[in-house]
C-alpha cells in the first residue's frame, strides 16, 4: 500500500514535469521557463552562494518568529483554556488578532519600530500567535479531567504534571499549531522581507521581480519547497512518530 502510494507520487511528479517542459517548449516565452532551465538557474544560484545565504537568513527569521509565536501562543492558549476569566478578557483581542490582515501588522510594526530586524520578526510572530493560542485553548478544553485527578490525588509535583499529564494530551494540538504555523510563517516572512529588509529570500524575489527574472523566482521557489519538505520529513514527522509511539 505504501509502495503503491509512493509509486503514484513519482508518476504524478514525472507527468507534471513532462507537461511543464512541453508547455514551456511550445510557448517559448520568458514567462514560463521549463524545468531544465529552472534547475540550471538553481545550480547557478547555489554555486554563486546567494541562494544559500538568502535561505539561511530567511530560515533564521522563520525559526525566531516561530519560536516566539509558539511560546507566547501556548502560554496564552493554556491560560485561556484553563481559566474562564482570562478567556473572557482575552477572547475579543484574540478574535481581533486572528482577523487583522498580516499586511497591516507588518506595516504598523515597521512604522512604530523602524525598518529593523526586531520589527520584522515581531510582525511575523504577532501574525501567527493568535492561531497558536486558539488551537492550544481548544486542546486545553479537551483535556481529560479524570487524568488530571490522578495527578491531584497522588500530589504529583506541578512540573511533572505539566510534562507527563498535560503536555501529552496537547501534543496533537501543538503539532497542528506547529504545522499550520510553519506554513503561515514562511509566507509572512517573505512579505516582511519584501517590504522592509535588504536580505533574505523575500528581498531576492523582489529583485528578480524588478527584472522579470521568472527563472530565478522559480529556482528560489524550488529551493524553498525543498527546505520545507526537509523540515517536514527530518523534524516534524519523526517528532510526531516519537510522541505518538504509544498509539502503535
Amino acid at each position: 500500500m505504501l509502495q503503491g502510494s509512493n509509486w503514484g507520487r513519482w508518476l504524478f511528479l514525472s507527468v507534471f514535469l513532462c507537461i511543464w517542459q512541453i508547455a514551456a517548449y511550445l510557448l517559448e516565452s520568458n514567462q514560463l521557463p521549463g524545468p531544465l532551465a529552472v534547475m540550471q538557474s538553481l545550480w547557478s544560484h547555489l554555486t554563486d552562494g546567494d541562494l544559500l545565504v538568502s535561505v539561511a537568513v530567511t530560515l533564521r527569521r522563520v525559526v525566531l518568529a516561530f519560536t516566539i509565536a509558539m511560546l507566547a501562543g501556548i502560554l496564552v492558549g493554556f491560560l485561556m483554556g484553563r481559566f474562564p476569566l482570562i478567556d473572557t478578557i482575552l477572547d475579543g483581542v484574540l478574535i481581533m488578532g486572528l482577523n487583522i490582515p498580516a499586511l497591516v501588522v507588518i506595516i504598523l510594526c515597521y512604522v512604530w519600530f523602524g525598518l529593523v530586524e526586531a520589527a520584522a520578526v515581531a510582525a511575523v510572530a504577532i501574525n501567527k500567535m493568535p492561531l497558536v493560542a486558539v488551537t492550544v485553548r481548544e486542546g486545553v478544553r479537551a483535556i481529560d479531567h479524570q487524568l488530571l485527578q490522578v495527578g491531584e490525588v497522588f500530589r504529583v509535583p506541578l512540573l511533572r504534571r505539566l510534562v507527563h499529564i498535560y503536555l501529552p494530551q496537547l501534543y496533537p494540538y501543538l503539532m497542528a499549531a506547529a504545522r499550520s504555523g510553519l506554513s503561515l510563517i514562511w509566507k509572512i516572512v517573505l512579505v516582511v522581507e519584501l517590504l522592509g529588509r535588504s536580505d533574505g529570500v523575500g528581498f531576492q524575489l523582489n529583485t528578480f521581480f524588478q527584472f522579470f527574472d521568472i527563472t530565478s523566482i522559480l529556482a528560489y521557489t524550488l529551493a524553498f519547497v525543498f527546505v520545507i519538505y526537509s523540515i517536514e520529513s527530518l523534524l516534524m514527522r519523526p517528532l510526531e512518530n516519537y510522541l505518538t509511539r504509544w498509539r502503535s
Partner: peptide, 24 residues
C-alpha cells in the same frame, strides 16, 4: 497519605507501565 484506585484504571496511555507507577 491517601491513594485511590478509580473505577476505571485511569492510566496515562502514553507512559509505560513502569512510568505510570513512577509518575506518582
Amino acid at each position: 497519605c491517601v491513594s485511590y484506585v478509580f473505577q476505571d484504571p485511569r492510566l496515562m496511555p502514553w507512559l509505560s507501565v513502569r512510568e505510570n507507577i513512577e509518575l506518582v
